[in-house]
Design a protein around this nucleic acid. Structure first.
Lengths: 237, 237
DNA sequence: TTTCATTCTATTCATTTGATTAGGTATTGA
DNA sequence: TCAATACCTAATCAAATGAATAGAATGAAA
């Protein structure tokens, strides 16, 4: 009824979107590499190609910048898992579990920052960790535990407590990518190579579900979710 | 200077040894928790109960303090592995592998700093990581790969490439303890509880070597290597 | 005792850090 | 056109950080 006196907030400039995302990209990389305290706002700004005060313009503080970057990362992760799950109808739980594990491994390879950031914030008396666990990790854990509990109950997976299974799965799946620089030096293998990712997914699934479980029959093409997920990068005519 | 009579260098004061080790303890904890850049020398000093300039007296720089703390940690780790291995004569390789894995898990539970520090330093263009890999991780990796290659060749372990096996093993074994604060909140389980440690060792061994491989038959009493192992990494004479 | 190296603290310094301020530019809507 | 607003930079601040300096306390050796 009331006439639109409340003029809609002025549109964001097109350039701003790109900048915001570049800042979030740089922030996520540096937070994951150097930890929250170790990553300086100046270095983040430099990597994003902007000046340091701009970070405090788009985000009120370093803390909010961290939160925004982590939010976006988990959003991408849940989107990847959800997209995979949506493509499955009438598939048995065992196959679903295998495919979800593979999707987790693909994402961990493309975005090792996820596991790195969890690890770095995982220390006593850390408010960022409280937020991280409650907001993002908890639902993931609950879903995983619920799925595996059913499989264990049916004997399709070794009878191991769900929590142990959760950390065995996440640790086995993500560690090689989290420690990619080390892996390259130790073995000469580049874990980020698509074939190496596929081989690792095979290995983890085979170890968890027994031999011949990790063969190509259960594979799915890694979704190549590497690059910018954001709808930015619209062609600037 | 003249012949200097080679008077044996004056003995260290008794109190100094204790102080040095307290500093190393505090440094290791804080480096593992907050990363190299995030851990401040003042906070380390405070936790050790000394003033900050004392760190630069015992160690020339923050970097040398980090190196000394990591050196001592790996020395303790190798000592634990070696002590376990020395107690085994005429034992088959498969059993040795299981016991070494258990020892790794026990140590990871008592000293999650080891995996945490490796993870934190694992980033491109990092001289600390170069030193860490070459000095401490490389021999560990080579030994592990060599042992597992034999087991795989004999079909006693799933046919998985050694590098993948290495990261599956370390990730599955250490992650729950590295993420202990998270685990406590998610599951209510305290991973540092001795029974929880034992259960996790059982789980990892069972997953790697098949069912009934992780039963009590293959267990060894966790060496309770919690406290100060230090015959402290020999002060440079 | 005296000597003297070892151990430790108080003070200080030059940088770096996150954040703020003031100002400048450009796009939008009327 | 012309204000209003979104976007971005230069300059700066107070607090912190690693390191250096000077010097006190301690105890072993002469």
């Amino acid at each position: 009824m009331t006439i639109s006196v409340a003029t809609a907030p002025r549109q964001q400039r097109p350039s701003a979107n790109g900048t915001r995302d570049r800042i979030l990209d740089a922030a996520l990389d540096l937070f994951a590499d150097r930890s929250y305290e170790g990553a300086t706002t100046r270095e983040i700004a430099a990597r994003a190609g902007v000046t340091q005060p701009l970070l405090n313009y788009h985000f009120h503080s370093k803390d909010e910048l961290w939160t925004s970057a982590v939010d976006r990362l988990f959003s991408q992760f849940n989107q990847a898992l959800g997209a995979r799950r949506d493509g499955l109808h009438g598939v048995d739980d065992l196959s679903i579990a295998k495919l979800m594990i593979r999707e987790f491994i693909y994402f961990s390879a493309a975005h090792p920052q996820l596991h790195r950031i969890i690890t770095q914030e995982c220390k006593a008396d850390n408010t960022r960790m409280d937020w991280l666990v409650q907001t993002h990790v908890r639902p993931l854990y609950d879903t995983t535990v619920s799925l595996f509990s059913q499989l264990v109950a049916r004997g399709e997976v070794p009878a191991i407590a769900p929590t142990n299974l959760y950390y065995i799965l996440t640790g086995a799946g993500a560690t090689m990518f989290v420690l990619a620089p080390e892996c390259r030096r130790l073995s000469g293998i580049d874990p980020m190579d698509p074939r190496a990712i596929e081989a690792h997914a095979d290995a983890v699934v085979e170890i968890l579900f027994g031999p011949s479980a990790g063969t190509r029959a259960n594979r799915t093409a890694p979704k190549q979710s590497r690059g910018a997920v954001t709808s930015s990068a619209k062609g600037d005519s």
